[in-house]
Design a binder for these strands. Sequence first.
DNA 1: CGGGTCATTATGGGATATCATGGGAATTCA
DNA 2: TGAATTCCCATGATATCCCATAATGACCCG
Lengths: 155, 155
Amino acid sequence: MDLFLSTYENRIDGKGRISVPASYRAVLERNRSPLYIFKSLTHACLEGCGPERISQIVDAIDQMDSLSEEAEILQTMLFSAQEMKIDSDGRMLLPAEFIEFAGLDGTALFSGIGRSFQIWRPDQHQRREADFRERATKQGVPRLTLGRRPEPGER
Amino acid sequence: MDLFLSTYENRIDGKGRISVPASYRAVLERNRSPLYIFKSLTHACLEGCGPERISQIVDAIDQMDSLSEEAEILQTMLFSAQEMKIDSDGRMLLPAEFIEFAGLDGTALFSGIGRSFQIWRPDQHQRREADFRERATKQGVPRLTLGRRPEPGER
DNA sequence: CGGGTCATTATGGGATATCATGGGAATTCA
DNA sequence: TGAATTCCCATGATATCCCATAATGACCCG
């Protein structure tokens, strides 16, 4: 299905290397896609994805008034993005800037959310998950329309 | 009938493996579907399903403001979800995290509820069933409207 | 109707492969 | 030439595969 799912907690070694979870690598390799990582606009975490997702963001910004402040804000995602090289052992090298931005300290948590994933400081991610679960029980789960899926092309 | 039905109580061995009930496997195999398992948002149990349900969640999130609270709650399902590999003997390996989350201890109860199923600690599931039956007799049952199913190809 | 055989399923254990991770050597770049 | 990066190999932990066994139920045939 080619989705990034599940969470993985991996170590960052002295050289700044970290293993990309094997299942995420498999998704990228199946599509012959390079991996892009950029700083989240809204959280102290990193975002990872393939090229399609980057294109989507570019296209969305191109639809906007390119001189607007909104467009400029979204552009910060793009210029923080880097194409990551993955070595023969499946590891990437996290630049110091990324490590600092996400507050990483020796270990990082990969959190797959479908077509993209996030990289968090493990304790922060845990807090978020606990928070979401509490809200889900108190306020209920968002409506999910189950049942027949729309045909492709159908609205 | 491609539905998950009935309940099965199976053992979890020392390695964390458990047999997926044969009838559930048959459903998945007929559709050539992999099996996904994720932590319930609202109960101390696991949920199992095929890829359609995961796609629904992904698509639903993509339609929403991806920074909204609702989207984040749905993302909790995704990052707790895993595609399970089923070995040649029909077993899957339950990660320690799943076992702990559902409070499993040696045995797990599969509970088929149609297009998905749940995995419970057996005694908790029993309590739930007794509770629901009692409420049904005391408070009556919810309205159940069984409409005609659309013909294949009919809108 | 009874008894035996076979297929299916759940489960256990040992062998094998995969993965994350650490460290050193080689290479690149400034 | 020094620092940073990439490549290569070693290792332990874990996951996966493969085979064996037991229990159950379906099936067939006398």
